[in-house]
């Protein structure tokens, strides 16, 4: 028998678990458009968690962060990526190197490693339970797996963006009181990444007329 977390901690953990499940959903999803939608959903959940923390723990700066990440990650980034996708007329992601069930099992192992590695650190936070921190590390690691097993530029970009979601979840746990300017700097980092990945997708699709990265292994003389 273990001590039961209170209602606030329990709900916060459920929201953090939802972020992880959305990450796994992106790993499983083969249709690129739906992958982008899942990313938008995940960002929405992270923004909601920021708002919940702002309300429950009385950290009003987080409202601004929640609003900013809502505008940027739920609206702008998915819009930009779907716009890029519209020009490419490719809907299905290139086959992953592993099957769906296998990659889920691999990610469970990787996420478990992240869970217990961070759980063993014993970091405690004023605003959110430690479990949320472990979950955020699991999100980051599963995003790595997503980027490794997928062979198309869009999935890899989405993997990178969702990795940022994991990091902002972690920052909610360990640094909710961090000055707002730092958090906003993170968000603008993401904006830079979006531009870079956008250019990458464009150039790659222009050269090889596919989104698959397997064309990159060919040697050029």
């Amino acid at each position: 028998m273990q001590p039961v977390p209170g209602v606030f901690e329990g709900s916060a953990n459920v929201v953090a678990v939802l972020v992880l499940l959305a990450e796994f959903g992106m790993l499983r999803q083969a249709v690129l458009r739906d992958q982008v939608r899942l990313y938008a959903l995940q960002s929405l959940v992270v923004s909601a968690l920021a708002a919940i923390v702002a309300a429950g723990r009385d950290v009003p700066e987080l409202y601004a962060l929640a609003g900013l990440s809502l505008a940027l990650k739920v609206v702008i980034v998915p819009l930009v990526v779907t716009r890029l996708l519209r020009d490419t007329s490719e809907e299905i992601a290139g086959s992953g190197t592993l099957g769906v069930a296998t990659s889920v099992l691999v990610s469970i192992v990787v996420a478990g490693f992240g869970f217990f590695a961070v759980g063993a650190l014993g970091i405690h936070s004023r605003v959110l339970p430690t479990t949320a921190l472990s979950l955020s590390i699991a999100v980051v690691l599963v995003a790595f797996v997503l980027m490794i097993v997928r062979r198309d530029v869009v999935s890899q970009a989405i993997g990178f963006f969702s990795l940022e979601n994991g990091v902002s979840l972690a920052s909610l746990v360990v640094a909710a009181g961090l000055p707002l300017i730092l958090e906003v700097a993170f968000l603008f980092d993401l904006l830079v990444a979006v531009v870079v990945f956008g250019v990458l997708m464009r150039v790659h699709h222009g050269r090889t007329s596919s989104l698959s990265t397997s064309a990159l292994t060919r040697l050029r003389g």
Partner: peptide
């Protein structure tokens, strides 16, 4: 198997969160 792997994921994460004391 893909469907079952989703169910397996849910149940494993349930046990993980319990071991971390946050479940």
């Amino acid at each position: 198997t893909d469907f079952v792997s989703a169910a397996f994921l849910l149940s494993v994460v349930a046990v993980f969160t319990l071991y971390l004391g946050g479940g």
